[in-house]
Nucleic acid binder design. Sequence first.
DNA 1: TTTATATTCAATTAATATGTTGAATATTAA
DNA 2: TTAATATTCAACATATTAATTGAATATAAA
Lengths: 228, 228
Amino acid sequence: MPVTTTSQATTEHQLRDALAGVGKAIGHPHRLRLLELLAQRAYRVEQLAELCDLNMASTSQHLQQLRRAGLITARREGRQMIYRLTDDRIVDLLGLVRDIAQSQLAEVERLLGQLFPQDIDEAPTEVFTRERLLQGLENGSVTLLDVRPGAEFEAGHLPGARHLTLAELKQHLHELPADRTIVAYCRGPYCTLSHQAVAYLRQQGYRVARLADGFPEWKRAGLPVEEG
Amino acid sequence: MPVTTTSQATTEHQLRDALAGVGKAIGHPHRLRLLELLAQRAYRVEQLAELCDLNMASTSQHLQQLRRAGLITARREGRQMIYRLTDDRIVDLLGLVRDIAQSQLAEVERLLGQLFPQDIDEAPTEVFTRERLLQGLENGSVTLLDVRPGAEFEAGHLPGARHLTLAELKQHLHELPADRTIVAYCRGPYCTLSHQAVAYLRQQGYRVARLADGFPEWKRAGLPVEEG
DNA sequence: TTTATATTCAATTAATATGTTGAATATTAA
DNA sequence: TTAATATTCAACATATTAATTGAATATAAA
């Protein structure tokens, strides 16, 4: 007859505790922000602290919670610690949480409407899937534009992408082709950078579209990237 | 020039707060247990309370946290509330958390070794993928055995599955075919029921294998189920 | 209506998580 | 060695979350 030892329930409970640790780790806005940043590239504690507007001790502690949950790893390099995602599946995890929240929580829907307002007069911006972008790059019908911060571009970007931050866009406007569709991309679906770039370029009369998601998802999909 | 309103940072923070809510929701062992159960079938509060060994008030509060996070919905039916997963993607979420934890946390690896000990002498139990099982069912080379509790089987099971709990297995042993492989399945990868069934049947001389994952994953994959 | 029942709400206490400060550690450069 | 720097640890105050109890609500049956 099947045996159910007394310790089995305990083990199952411990197992559930360990899995809950992953939930706890992503269950805080600061840690989500850290993961979003680390999905773009590896960072030192100091940089993360600055980008998240946290002090170093706090940042370090959050990073260690993420590490204990198996979501990031640390490597010492000289006198600094470099943190990175353990695994591309963390990108999937963040994406899945985003998708579930977006489809089930009215609050998220509302906030997205606020963050990405649709100008009702205009036709909606064209959105490229990864497949369509690949095709466009192959037949040379699109110019690819990375509008993330320079450091993120340098650590890795889509092949052939031109890099311009929003601030640089105005001065280099004439360098962009008027006869081809410009496809802008940024950190991911909830990042506003590519939306802002698209709005500006469109206003300036360019043919412009937006990649549906960002660099991490592209890399996660196993598509080629140029690394700095 | 691109505009960054003062409220944008706030909106992004609120958005991250909402997403963190999903993490918080799955960041407690009791709530994970509740989700595992609800992945099998819809349940009333009372049943969940009993299965999780919690009192009703506590159970109800945990359920409401899951509901606020958009992971489950409630429907009143007479004087009772029926809870169910909002979405099959919740099954994906649990699976992804499991996979990440398993590959990144030594503690999880250790606990699994404890929960599913490999008898070193024996050849390891054969594990069927869903694809292989489908094929085996088609050509009639396997008998499918559901070893979950009766209520879960009745709410939905794999087509053609025979239901026997571990307790019932002994008495109905002779009804099982000796000339075909018996494939047992249960709640999912971390459920011990199918392992126990396999160990017993094997010891009794049956040709027996285990489905890699359980009923929720099968259903989630869009494969046919027989509903009670 | 009244009564019985399932569930949720409210209030309390206990437990846990967070942010902050200053000290401790580990590594490089002097 | 010593000094400088990046990071982590320890300890505290504060905030959030959990479990428990008893009361309140909503529905169905009497």
